[in-house]
Amino acid sequence: MPSTRVETRAGWIGDRHDALIAAVQSALVEGIRIPEQDRDIRIIEYPAHAFAPPASKGPGYTIIEVSMFAGRSVEAKRRLYAALVREFAAFGVPAGDVKVVVHDVPRENWGLGGKSAADIELGFKVEV
């Protein structure tokens, strides 16, 4: 059950928010093998004066932060990184303009419905 935040400068997404959310979800399903219906994605667009990317980056520079249960393999994370870059390329964002930060969170540090995620049957495998 990852929680994903996509941060970028305003303007380049236009009216494609639904398509971008679908692209991120597709990458998560492919990369870390979550169920298709397991979705928690937010897009935050900043005005240019409030988002300062490195000078070498283009207008679509994007930071994607994925907080997820600890236990995914390095290979699963590699799949995720590659899938996100591929999906963003379809929006005209070059690979070098996509930064991904993964936060591995122990299940006991994640509360769902008033319970620790360590005490809940998730319905999917985390160790992929």
Rank of each mutant, 00 (worst) to 15 (best):
G58D: 09
E36S: 06
G58Y: 10
D18G: 15
R39F: 02
A55H: 05
A23N: 12
I43A: 11
V29N: 09
I43W: 09
P59E: 12
A55S: 08
P54I: 02
R39T: 06
I44L: 06
G58Q: 10
G31H: 08
P53H: 05
G31V: 04
S56A: 15
A52Y: 01
D40Y: 15
F51Q: 00
A55T: 04
V24E: 08
L20D: 02
I44F: 05
A22G: 11
Q25F: 11
P35E: 03
R39C: 09
P59C: 07
A27R: 08
P47H: 10
D18Y: 06
I32W: 00
A23I: 02
V24G: 06
Q37M: 04
I41F: 02
G58A: 10
E30N: 13
A48I: 07
I44D: 07
I32S: 00
Q37G: 07
R16H: 13
I32Y: 00
G31R: 10
E36R: 09
A50C: 11
H49T: 15
H49A: 14
D38E: 11
A55Y: 02
E45G: 08
A23Y: 04
L20V: 13
E36G: 00
Q37N: 10
P54Q: 01
G58N: 07
D15N: 15
P59F: 06
I34K: 02
E36K: 08
I41V: 15
G58P: 02
V29Q: 12
A52N: 02
P47A: 05
D15V: 07
P47V: 11
R33F: 14
A50M: 12
D40T: 14
P54H: 02
I21A: 10
F51V: 01
L28T: 09
E30G: 12
A27D: 08
F51E: 03
A48D: 06
P47E: 11
R16W: 12
S56T: 12
A27P: 03
E45H: 03
R42I: 14
Q37P: 02
A48K: 09
A48R: 09
E45P: 05
A22C: 07
L28K: 04
F51A: 00
I41A: 11
P35R: 01
L20H: 10
S26T: 10
P53S: 01
V29D: 10
A50N: 07
A50V: 06
P54M: 01
Q25R: 14
I32M: 04
D15Q: 14
H17F: 13
Y46T: 04
I32D: 01
R42Y: 04
K57R: 13
Q25N: 15
Q25I: 12
R33Y: 13
G31Y: 03
A48Q: 03
K57G: 03
D40H: 15
R42G: 14
P54G: 01
H17Y: 14
R39P: 11
L28V: 10
F51S: 01
A19N: 06
P53G: 01
E30F: 14
I21F: 11
D40S: 13
D38Q: 06
R16K: 14
D15I: 05
P59L: 07
D40V: 15
D40P: 08
R16G: 05
A52T: 00
A22K: 07
R16E: 12
S56E: 12
K57V: 03
P47N: 06
I44Y: 06
V29L: 06
S26Q: 15
D38V: 08
S56K: 07
P59M: 04
H17M: 13
I34P: 04
